[in-house]
Each structure stands twice: as structure tokens, then as C-alpha cells.
């Protein structure tokens, strides 16, 4: 892994200039504010550096910068931030796993919220990603109730297929794909769920309906179309592959051509 080669000596004395997007709420206009911050340690995570900034701001009587975060171990998908022109910053990981040793003394770091029509800004760096939930609600599940299911080993699944489904299932729903895409397209996110369930036998019965409904909801939310630039894959902290998008295209096309008519809400 390349990061092992690039390790730097630890220091706790970096000077960083932060250019942070501040916006009171969705109804007001926002703008950048510049905050110099001193004594930054290379061992700090990016979010810990923001904690330091916020504590300083509060002590000075200024409102803290609002940003989303929760698990701080790279799995909940709640943290976001567009850092120096890249979602989750310079490394292909989540912002909470980005450490200040990725920056140099004297750097200016621009921090912006995710930008997409479907992800309106709530405050400062916090955006509303409930569009993702609504897409999942449109069909990202297997319609079974609790209980009355077959024994787990009654459905053998080839290891390769299980592994491929897993590779799609690791999506954390952070929205970096949308943030990275010049079209703010959510195709990587949608394709990850469609792929997982299209690959597994459990997902087969509702496969066509699922692809149609999830795509319709994706469009209704106002995400852009995929132009196969590959930015999403390059920035995805979980390394979800573009192959999934191809699979979604295939699933959707074949569903459109062969499915029975289903009630689909949404659409442009």
C-alpha cells in the first residue's frame, strides 16, 4: 500500500489556513470564511482539526462550523466534505480517516459541502442526503418478512458471486460519488445496491421491478445522468467499481424491455 511509503515525521506545529464554506441555512446565501489555525498535529484526523477550530470559535464567541460525522472510523458514511477539490480530500478514504499528515505546513485548504441539486445544503458543510434513502425505499430490498425463511444453507451461492455481491454491498452511502461527478449522478450508489441484489439468488424475483423503481426514483430526485467519466469510482472511499454501473444499465434496459408493467412513481 502506497501510504506506507509516504509516511512523514510527526509534528504538532503545522500552520494551516482553512477556507470554509459558511451558510446559515438553506434559505440564506453562503460564502467562504478564512480561518488560520496553528499548532496542527500531523497525527490529527481532519475532523479533529475541525474540532480544534470549533472549540476555538466557541471560545471567541463565534458559531461553530457545522459538519456531519459520526463513527469516525470510515464506515457509517456520515462524514462528507469536499476538500481541495476532491470529495473526502486527497486520499481515497473517508474524511474521518484523512489525517493532517496528508498536508504540508503552510497549506491553504478549501472545504466545501457536497454540491448537488439533490443534496441541498442544510447548514455550513451539512447537506441533506435523504434522497439516497428514498432511492433505497423505492426497491433496495428483498420483500420477505421476518420469520418463515428457509435455512441459511438451503441457498448455496458460489463464493465468487457472493464475493462480487459483497464488493457492491460495501457502499457506505456517503455520497462522494455524487459529489465527485461533474453531473452529480448517483449511478454508482444506485448500481451498488442493484448489483448486490441482482447477483444474489435472493434478489432475483424482484430484479426487474427493483431496477426500474430505483432508477425512476433516482431521476425524480434530480441526480444527473452518468457519462462514464469514472470520477465516482476514483473517489469512492470503498472502491466500488464501475462494473456495477454497467450492470445497472443492463438490468434497467432489459427490465424496461421485458418487465410486466409496474406502477413506478417518479420519472422526469
Amino acid at each position: 500500500m502506497n501510504l506506507l511509503n509516504g509516511l512523514k515525521e510527526a509534528t504538532n506545529n503545522m500552520k494551516i489556513t482553512l477556507k470554509v464554506w459558511r451558510q446559515k441555512n438553506n434559505a440564506t446565501k453562503g460564502g467562504f470564511k478564512v480561518y488560520p489555525i496553528e499548532h496542527v498535529s500531523t497525527d490529527m484526523s481532519f475532523l479533529e482539526m475541525l474540532d480544534v477550530l470549533n472549540n476555538d470559535l466557541v471560545r471567541k464567541g463565534e458559531d461553530a462550523v457545522a459538519f456531519d460525522h459520526d463513527c469516525r472510523e470510515g464506515i457509517c458514511g456520515m462524514c462528507s466534505l469536499y476538500i481541495n477539490g476532491k470529495p473526502h480530500g486527497p486520499q481515497q478514504t473517508t474524511t474521518c480517516q484523512l489525517h493532517m499528515r496528508s498536508f504540508k505546513d503552510g497549506d491553504t485548504i478549501t472545504v466545501e459541502p457536497w454540491r448537488a441539486k439533490a443534496f441541498p445544503v442544510i447548514r455550513d458543510l451539512v447537506v441533506d442526503r435523504t434522497a439516497f434513502d428514498r432511492i433505497q425505499q423505492a426497491g433496495g430490498y428483498v420483500s420477505i418478512n421476518t420469520g418463515g425463511v428457509p435455512d441459511a444453507n438451503e441457498i448455496p451461492i458460489p463464493k465468487k458471486i457472493a464475493d462480487e455481491a459483497f464488493d457492491a454491498a460495501v457502499c457506505i452511502g456517503c455520497g462522494a460519488c455524487v459529489a465527485a461527478c461533474k453531473n452529480a449522478s448517483a449511478m454508482l450508489f444506485v448500481s451498488a445496491k442493484v448489483s448486490q441484489l441482482a447477483l444474489l439468488p435472493q434478489g432475483k424475483p424482484e430484479r426487474k421491478e427493483r431496477a426500474e423503481k430505483m432508477v425512476a426514483q433516482m431521476d425524480a430526485e434530480g441526480f444527473g445522468a452518468c457519462t462514464n467519466t469514472g470520477a465516482c469510482e476514483a473517489e469512492c472511499p470503498k472502491g466500488i467499481s464501475l462494473t456495477n454501473i454497467a450492470r445497472l444499465n443492463r438490468e434497467y434496459l432489459s427490465a424496461s424491455l421485458t418487465s410486466y408493467e409496474v406502477e413506478v412513481k417518479g420519472g422526469d
Partner: peptide
């Protein structure tokens, strides 16, 4: 459609990772 999908505000800094 794609232009509109970005929303009202664009990015100040972009550092593209696509071709």
C-alpha cells in the same frame, strides 16, 4: 439536465480525477 443537477452553487475548487 446534468448542468442543473449540480444545483444552485458550483464548487470553488475542483481537482478532477477523471479523464
Amino acid at each position: 439536465h446534468n448542468r442543473k443537477s449540480r444545483g444552485p452553487e458550483g464548487y470553488a475548487v475542483t481537482n478532477g480525477s477523471s479523464a
